[in-house]
Amino acid sequence: MKNLLNQLYARQPLSREAAYITLKRIANGEAAEPEIAAVVSAINMRPPHLSEIQGFRDAMLELAVPFELEGRPTIDIVGTGGDGKNTFNISTLSCFVVAGAGYPVTKHGSYGVSSNVGSSDVLQALGYQFSNDRDKLMADLDRAGICFLHAPLFHPAMKNVVPVRKSLRVRTFFNLLGPLINPARPRYQLFGTYDREVSRIYDYLLQGEENRDYLIVHALDGYDEISLTGGASVRGRRCQAIFYPDDFGLPELSPPSLYGGETPEEGKAIFLGVLEGNCTPEQLAVVSANAGLAIHVIHPERSLPDCVAEARESIESGRARNVLHKLLG
């Protein structure tokens, strides 16, 4: 570990193999908490490197509890977090909207670490019971059109990292890994990243996975999702463009309209408000935009405004709300 730290302190990138070995050592309990904190801090002090993300991802997927979909096409909508914007749970809500529109969702998420309320925080507040039992999750998927893969149950080897991340309370390279390690390996995915360079790394990693379709979003003002507060860089296998609110047929929003509260209970209230139609026009617009873009991943031949309209109809018809009721039932 000493040689590794010296390399990191010298700002030298780790090879893919070295990153893989490092993460496996951490997962296997071979590194003390101060050493883990030192590794995380050293990597945080410079931009991410492709070889490191590849190696860390290799190890995480190898160590994960498998979740086999047996060829069923599903989608996940997930952001890195760590953008410091403290928005409400837009990506998680968008998953319920997409499921309400008839597209199966395998959502991967966890507790908020660098943000106040993560997807697991709000679902737990709603009464959802986490599980990594495949039969139970497949039953959720069949009944509700969505299942939730709580990351700590699928990546138990990361229990050694949790205390360090909680104590640091800042964005780390684990934020970058989270969206890339959904054990379901969904056929479709909408990613959000807090940094444009991270978007490029994601795109490079995913270009070789020919059995997956995806889009990667980075709002130009720093959000890890379509915020409608300005333009957003969107890239994928067949797309590289800047999308503006007009492209979605929606108005530009102000950052305060996306505020997500400070506690899981506040997050829960906003979450239910959107699904029950008791939300602000801005909240409805931003969820419709992200859910619409996710539908566009599945149906790239459809226009963005048409996909947004399909998402909005899922909310206004009550179908998105029914997805939640079925999942909790």
Rank of each mutant, 00 (worst) to 15 (best):
N211C: 06
G178P: 03
G267H: 03
L205G: 08
H108I: 07
A289S: 10
H218R: 10
K326N: 11
I295F: 07
L284Q: 15
V287R: 03
E30M: 11
D76G: 06
L126T: 06
G260S: 09
G249H: 02
P156E: 01
D203E: 14
A311C: 10
Y204C: 12
I298H: 05
G29W: 12
E35F: 01
V98F: 14
L149P: 05
E210N: 11
I226L: 14
R16K: 14
F88P: 02
E282K: 11
N322L: 14
H218E: 12
G292P: 06
G84P: 00
T87C: 13
N278I: 03
A19G: 15
R312K: 15
A291H: 11
D58Q: 13
E210W: 04
T172P: 12
E262K: 12
V308P: 00
H150N: 15
R185C: 09
V113Y: 00
Y9K: 06
Y214K: 01
A309E: 09
A19K: 07
A64R: 04
Y103C: 01
I146H: 06
P13I: 00
Q283E: 05
C279L: 09
T22D: 00
A10N: 11
L177H: 10
N28M: 13
D195G: 01
R25Y: 05
E252V: 05
L137I: 05
F67D: 00
L168R: 11
E262V: 07
L206G: 12
M158D: 02
P300Y: 02
T106C: 15
N116V: 01
I242A: 04
E52I: 00
I146C: 10
K107S: 12
A64G: 08
E265D: 15
E68D: 15
R237M: 10
N86Q: 11
T92K: 02
G249E: 08
L324F: 12
I226Q: 11
V234H: 05
I75Q: 03
L327S: 06
T172E: 04
G118P: 00
I242Y: 13
Y259G: 10
G81L: 02
D135P: 08
R212C: 12
F243Q: 12
I90V: 14
H296V: 04
N160K: 05
I242L: 13
L63H: 10
G145T: 03
L123Y: 13
K136Q: 11
G100S: 05
G81T: 01
R185P: 05
I315H: 08
D306V: 01
T106E: 07
L23K: 00
E209Q: 08
G79M: 11
F173M: 04
E17N: 07
M138N: 10
F243D: 10
M45E: 15
S119R: 02
I43L: 11
P47Q: 01
S254I: 02
G208V: 05
L272G: 01
Q54D: 09
V286S: 11
R134N: 09
D247S: 07
A18R: 08
R46D: 03
G178S: 09
Y111R: 04
P300R: 02
V234G: 07
E313Y: 07
E70Q: 15
S317L: 02
